[in-house]
Design a protein around this nucleic acid. Sequence first.
DNA 1: CATCGCATTTACAGCGCTGTAAGTTGTGGC
DNA 2: GCCACAACTTACAGCGCTGTAAATGCGATG
Lengths: 343, 343
Amino acid sequence: MARVRLADVAALAGVSMKTVSNVVRDYPHVTPEMRKRVQDAIDQLGYRPNLTARRLATGRTGMIALAVPEIDHPYFSELSRHVAEVALERGLRVILEQTLSTSEGEHAVLRDREAGLVDGVIFHPVSMTSLEISRFHRDTPLVLIGEAAVPLTTDHVMIDNVVAAAEATRHLLLLGRRELVFLGAVRGDVTVTTDRRLEGFQLALEEAGIRPGADRVLTADDFSPEAGAAAVHAALDAGDRIDGIVCRDDQFAVGALRALHERGVETPERIAIVGWDDTALSRYSFPQITSVSPDKRAIAEIALAMLVERIDGLAGPGRHRIAPHRLAVRDTAPREGISALQR
Amino acid sequence: MARVRLADVAALAGVSMKTVSNVVRDYPHVTPEMRKRVQDAIDQLGYRPNLTARRLATGRTGMIALAVPEIDHPYFSELSRHVAEVALERGLRVILEQTLSTSEGEHAVLRDREAGLVDGVIFHPVSMTSLEISRFHRDTPLVLIGEAAVPLTTDHVMIDNVVAAAEATRHLLLLGRRELVFLGAVRGDVTVTTDRRLEGFQLALEEAGIRPGADRVLTADDFSPEAGAAAVHAALDAGDRIDGIVCRDDQFAVGALRALHERGVETPERIAIVGWDDTALSRYSFPQITSVSPDKRAIAEIALAMLVERIDGLAGPGRHRIAPHRLAVRDTAPREGISALQR
DNA sequence: CATCGCATTTACAGCGCTGTAAGTTGTGGC
DNA sequence: GCCACAACTTACAGCGCTGTAAATGCGATG
């Protein structure tokens, strides 16, 4: 089946290819009757423009890549949805790239742009350093999200992790909790995300006159709920006094919840929990988990807006934007003060 | 930065463009020294082929679209991950399309949206009928997943929903449960997915000599856990005897679990639950939910394999493949018989 | 030593569309 | 009634790469 081409339409309508192109692209200076004549020919032939050819001619692909560690991680899948929707509004297509948090995967992402596959990239790096990114990046439109790498030369969006963590911690303090722990550090984790959140945790505690010791940070073997649960069990076994847990993400919150349930410790009565990311995990768990909620829509919108500006040729140093966040208050750390129980 | 082109490399290496092209594409009949000379020029210039131009010349885009209702639904995000990974193995890129289950979204996927953009589409329809799909599906290779629409003319993968539902039901019967209900039908839902699962549910019950009445099907207002929970509450309020619930998906299972917890009914001791899709929701809930587990990897592999064959020009009627499934046995319906309690 | 056959390399015409600059018309002013 | 000017439309050269067919080089053969 030979596809219908622009030239075929032009021949049928008895006009030049360029006029047909103008009609297709809604170029303003086309007389109504001409537009109708061409449109009729298009309809009659069922013509669809070949986007690949258009791209070669314009140099624009109309596509952006969204590169995340894992698409099926709830935070990233929810973010992807917003990016896809915002992109659609702007007439852009989204290519999905999974880096699996590997260095090779992340390098491959930046190379794609060089291949002219996409006009720009929204990238949530994990393992690449700022230096590596800025070296690769050069002048291809790129917007980073997350906290991992923040080269000064590159646009970047994130929420204020320190502030958000402090707010989450203060929320527990307001509930009367004093024996708080942070879950958790992860063995072998080199990213700064945990550091920022830990920083906010510490800040809020010190404000409240509490000087947290190293034993207030629970360490897990990996990022799974199981590892989180194990860390909580270990702390409880060691006799640590705990009445509130600030988790670095919802997976750990789920793990903490499970561990507490397994030991018959009520949540939030005995130990309150705050998660992070406000993903389906926290909304669908039982009890539902109070969670730091990054405004994913805003992140998507800001990232895309900056990316489009770069694609349109904006030069200059990297811009660093802070997206809003809030605390999604649910069962595991409700708003009304359920004060800590005496043991 | 003027991009380096094939011609630049050719000039530097002192060969023709085509030879450079052959090196880039790993064409076998190139002498080692020639390959080296060209490769050196490529490295020196930092040349990257322009994929758009390649596409225009070859007629292949090397991209496929994956069109699902919602990317952030756990089932689809997990499926997407597999599709992305399998596609990567085959050197294909994946474009993400969200239909949001709307008719317009679904039509757009098959129509001009993808004109010349992708080599093929993997599509999970919800609202389009078989007829509509077969009418639209013309020139772009297409593979359908899910149960919604199954035109005879189009390739298709799904799991055997009737068999899987019967197995899930039998699992509960083997646990000694007899008072089973199906959660649930959804008001206004026109898809056949629920029907197939309900069919398997009924089949297994009849095998066991139980003739299920209409009151054994709980109806929810929508697909949310909240609606599922409400349906369970309503049934319990109505005094229905229930010792096991087969859910049409994990969201309903989460809802059922929540409702039972709210009423202080133990799971699985008093009422056992089986979910469907084996998503993060069932793995991360507490207690963990036993769930029908479609082999998502297999679905991705089969769909992609069929799609690639179509892209390579295979003609002929639609092929219909059944992907494997299993029952992921977890806490809410364990393997060992915890027999139903007398009330 | 000239010739043949094979493997490798080259030249060049597109792939389908758009940007540019150069027409072609039609209108209004003087 | 003629000319300048605006408003449309056209012709054509690429965008960067690859497929095809033809040309080249080279060792082997008689």
